[in-house]
Amino acid sequence: MRGDVLAPPVPVPGPVVRTVLGWAGVVVLWEVVARTALAGTRLIGTPTAMVAAAVEHAPLYGRALGVTLGEAAWGFLWGNLAAVLLAGLVAVLPFLERMVLRVALVVFCLPLVALGPILRVVFGFSDGPQITLAALAVYYTTLVPLLVGLRAVPAVWTDLVASYGRGRSSRWCGCARGPRCPTWRPGCRSPSRRRSSGRWSASSPGPSAAWAS
């Protein structure tokens, strides 16, 4: 056993190397399965074929990606701005909270496929529908954590601000930063994946592209 203790340690690759090796293994497995078990089924393409297609049609994919990211960014901006304004409205007029949340939930739950044609009619041929859909995918998941953060403000902080004769809006602006940020930031991040996937489906060829493009 003494020999085991004195043996030189086996070098262990670092986390970055392990991650790269893991992903490389997945890609190799994907390539092998696509070329062997699923060959000829047209179910999935191989990674090498996809890279070759992306290189071959680089200008087309680049333009589509740029348009999609641009619209998604505008939607993210407008959606979060709307959520902040609604949360501010509820903070100043708390009796509106139930109504705002219910309307927000109903709008958020409307199927994108149903909203698309309506937005196309409203906006005509512009980026409006795409940006609106991206904004709708974002705002609710920002609004709810923001309201949770605003409600988490201890009463003594608002009393402190009120004791200097400041109004309700000052109370929220002055002392809500701390509690609302921890809930707001993840809220802003969480819809980003949904937004991206939503925009991807809207910009993909197919029935949805008829109204989204």
């Binding site: 003594v156 902080w157 009393d159 402190l160 004791s163």
Partner: peptide, 13 residues
């Protein structure tokens, strides 16, 4: 007017 509360009510950030 200044009010001191039982909780120091300092803003933690």
């Amino acid at each position: 007017i200044a009010v001191a509360f039982q909780d120091a009510s300092l803003l933690p950030w």
